[in-house]
Design a protein around this nucleic acid. Structure first.
Lengths: 148, 148
DNA sequence: TATTGTTATACTCTATAACTATA
DNA sequence: TATAGTTATAGAGTATAACAATA
């Protein structure tokens, strides 16, 4: 390839581009563990992981927690109910709202996925020193806060 | 929301999740400048930015440079030719291959987009100190290298 | 036989908004 | 009137592979 650069912007050092390429690779490496092995897509996995954190939670709360839309969440819940991984009940307090939680089977699958994705995360972060990992998390926090 | 956490994985500190959410926000902020204003999607923009860097380049080279598939690139080139932003000629050396380059109009649009996306990048990175930006680029490089 | 690039097809994902039932 | 959640629809993006032309 002719490497003579005549442009004023080099994608290879453009932060949004580098972030996108990195995210794609990290996402691919991680998603295998729930997508291929347990047939959950990314939204499904996030809903399961969120439900595992709370005793009982509404769909709106999941939207807020996972940064996804109510439509995405509604579809994910429908898929997860179909597979008996999630239980949905009408809220006693507000009959419009629902109380969602993992089923026994849902929690079982969750507990099988967690060590795999955590191991994948560690494998990725192992390319950094302990100091660099600390720097990364601090930087991520600042960027998240700045872009919120 | 009931904040009682009973799970063993907290999405909020899970690196692949944080990376995905950050990338989505950065990508959204950046893409406005070519998507809304110039009707280019992300693939189109990457092809334009790549063509601006090289005098003449083949589709295969663009695939390699942008980490995208030949199908994505082929479609992007078709769209860009339709808009007269890109010129495509058959290679003298290998009649299967093509020599691609930006048209005058293509370069004009490119030069209008560049300052906008660079300003957006700076606005994002301004949430960090100069030292942190240096740390970030070093860390990005290590992760890219590790996941390549 | 292998490679360059295009096209076909089906599938997933996303965005927008209409809709219901409750409040 | 406003909110919780569902459903409809169309559009965008992706993956797989078949294909024609050339090497």
């Amino acid at each position: 390839m002719n490497k003579k650069t005549v442009g004023v912007l080099d994608l290879r050092v453009f932060f949004p581009y580098r972030l996108a390429v990195l995210e794609q690779r990290v996402g691919y490496a991680t998603s295998r563990h729930y997508q291929h092995d347990f047939d959950l897509n990314r939204t499904d996995w996030r809903v399961v992981a969120t439900l595992a954190m709370f005793d009982s939670i509404s769909a709106t709360d999941i939207c807020e927690f996972t940064h996804m839309t109510k439509m995405q969440i509604s579809r994910a819940i429908a898929r997860l109910k179909e597979k008996n991984l999630v239980v949905q009940a009408v809220s006693e307090i507000d009959h419009r709202a629902t109380q969602l939680s993992l089923s026994g089977e849902g929690r079982k699958i969750y507990l099988r996925i967690v060590p795999r994705v955590l191991a994948e995360e560690q494998a990725i972060l192992n390319h950094l020193s302990a100091v660099e990992r600390g720097q990364l998390f601090k930087i991520l926090g600042k960027l998240e806060h700045g872009l919120a």
